[in-house]
């Protein structure tokens, strides 16, 4: 069956026997997935369309709860508790586990207000503190130099790649433990893609990162661990190099050599 490596380092998330069923569906979209997510490293999720990688990603911050009727089973352990518990405080959870979307999602407000948004939600009103943390977040997202003279301008005036880095700045400004990336470069040009990949590698010093990607080269470039998913199952999880060079499962090998996909 599945070949899941045992991660010796500290883990930030543990998925155990996790199944997920969308509203109205008869069969689950994720079937008893068990998977550790290593702390301060990048875990990539790859697999053909419809394999459940985005569904899994959106379970980590309970995004599915925005649309009633979906069903979680099993366990996702984070900071010592099961975040699938119906009593879980979703607002708190989402400040700890941030998300970057496929298309840039700059809010219709100024660049500064975009980055300050999450901090203001947490009740930070002190202007000096806000200014300091906004600058730091923009610097960490490698976009400070481009926007420092137009922080009051509308964020929608930025290019796609800049907007995506702005979204990353907005997410790291609230100092999360985990960042979820849902195909963050699929709407970007190659140069912007390079910038985002570089950023992902730098950010793992501070946060654990899970990235869903359609692009196997991208997974190979940025990640430490890679999980291959197929039809709602996690087929293999391994060190990225090993998984791409010497996959243990036949399905993985067929996928990475392009026999299907």
């Amino acid at each position: 069956m599945a070949s899941i490596i045992d991660i010796k380092d500290e883990c930030s998330l543990h998925v155990r026997n996790f199944s997920f069923t969308y509203k109205g569906a008869t069969t689950p979209s994720l079937k008893k997935v068990t998977m550790p997510i290593a702390k301060h490293s990048v875990t990539a999720l790859i697999g053909p369309s419809g394999c459940g990688k985005t569904t899994l990603l959106r379970s980590f911050n309970r995004m599915h709860d925005l649309y009633p009727g979906n069903k979680y089973e099993g366990e996702i352990e984070f900071e010592g508790r099961n975040i699938l518990d119906p009593k879980e405080d979703l607002i708190h959870l989402r400040t700890k586990i941030g998300m970057i979307f496929q298309k840039p999602t700059a809010f219709p407000m100024s660049i500064f207000d975009n980055v300050a948004y999450g901090m203001r939600l947490q009740g930070i009103k002190n202007k000096t503190e806000l200014e300091g943390r906004v600058e730091k977040a923009l610097q960490d997202a490698a976009i400070w130099k481009e926007v420092k003279d137009r922080l009051k301008h509308d964020a929608n005036g930025l290019s796609g790649g800049q907007q995506q880095r702005l979204c990353i700045a907005r997410a790291i400004a609230v100092e999360p433990e985990v960042l979820l990336f849902d195909e963050p470069t699929s709407a970007l040009d190659p140069i912007s893609t390079q910038g985002i990949e570089k950023l992902v590698i730098e950010l793992k010093e501070r946060v654990s990162i899970i990235i869903v990607t359609h692009n196997m080269q991208q997974a190979a470039r940025v990640s430490d661990y890679t999980g291959f998913m197929y039809l709602g199952d996690l087929i293999e999880l391994g060190h990225t190099e090993e998984l791409f060079v010497t996959p243990k499962e036949k399905l993985t090998q067929e996928y990475i050599t392009g026999k299907f996909g």
């Binding site: 911050n61 995004m63 925005l66 607002i91 708190h92 959870l93 989402r94 400040t95 941030g98 998300m99 979307f101 496929q102 298309k103 999602t105 809010f107 948004y117 999450g118 939600l121 947490q122 979204c167 907005r170 997410a171 609230v174």
Partner: peptide, 18 residues
Amino acid sequence: VPGTLREAAFALGAPKYK
């Protein structure tokens, strides 16, 4: 207004009225 914009705000921990 695109649904992803709402999701992005929720993902930062915003309550619905916000």
